[in-house]
């Protein structure tokens, strides 16, 4: 179980995250939503142990994650927003590196990587340098390396970025299957349709503050909206999309 208790993070004196709390139980998927600058990335960095909160605490299975970070990271699988991989390694070499650094048996890494590469259509490209991979291929590499060690907790930060329709569909099904296997999943995304379909719970942030937290149905019912998109828009939308679109066309047409 992953629990955030009153997480607050300030950069200098500016609060990027303000008193955010939630619980994700095994088998649950929390969708983490919010516009740019709402504090999503800061939350992810705290939950992955890359940042320490200014106040509050993140607990995994009742233990502060900062108390034994290496032990916590052993149970964590993380797909970052940006596929900033080592371009000089091949896909397979990248898994070997990550697997070895995680202390996994080389044969196990090879076996699992081989299977996952085949499923995600990367097997023919496994010996090519990552520098030659497309964005979607890099994203698939990240995905494989996040689940290679069979983690109990998965943190996804915009995992569908650059993925083709088939892989995105596979990914969605995978999230659902993993949650039914009892994994704890934190899912941060802009794609509301996907979040609506795969997440059991939703949290919406704006300017570092928690706006709404609950199950998808509860949120929609509470806001009297038919879909998550409408609920999200009613809570965080600051710009009138129609008006902005009109202004863009005006700017292009202007002399």
């Amino acid at each position: 179980m992953l629990e955030a208790r009153s997480l607050t993070k300030c950069y200098s004196t500016v609060p990027a995250l303000d008193n955010v709390s939630f619980i994700i139980r095994p088998g649950e998927v929390l969708g983490y939503l919010g516009p740019n600058g709402s504090g999503k990335s800061t939350t992810v960095k705290i939950l992955t142990g890359l940042l320490q909160p200014t106040s509050g605490v993140a607990l995994f299975n009742g233990q502060n994650i900062q108390s034994d970070l290496p032990a916590y990271k052993r149970q964590l699988g993380y797909v970052p927003e940006e596929a900033n991989l080592y371009p000089f390694l091949s896909g397979l070499e990248y898994f070997e590196l990550v697997g070895r650094l995680r202390g996994l048996n080389a044969n196990l890494v090879q076996k699992r990587a081989d299977k996952l590469l085949r499923i995600l259509s990367l097997h023919p490209h496994r010996h090519l340098a990552i520098s030659s991979y497309s964005k979607g291929m890099r994203q698939r590499i990240l995905l494989i390396s996040a689940i290679l060690h069979n983690p109990d907790l998965l943190i996804f930060d915009e995992p569908l970025s650059g993925l083709d329709v088939t892989t995105a569909l596979i990914f969605r099904k995978m999230v659902q299957t993993m949650s039914s296997e009892g994994k704890t999943i934190f899912y941060c995304s802009h794609v509301l349709e996907v979040v609506e379909k795969v997440c059991s719970h939703i949290m919406i942030l704006r300017k570092g503050k928690q706006l709404a937290y609950g199950s998808v149905d509860d949120l929609n019912r509470f806001q009297s909206m038919a879909s998550l998109e409408e609920t999200f828009s009613s809570l965080v939308q600051e710009t009138d999309a129609e008006q902005a679109a009109g202004e863009i066309v005006d700017a292009v047409l202007s002399r």
Partner: peptide, 12 residues
């Protein structure tokens, strides 16, 4: 790049 690849691994 090192940070984003290595800091999330179970390494001190």
């Amino acid at each position: 790049r090192d940070f984003s690849n290595l800091a999330v691994l179970p390494l001190p």
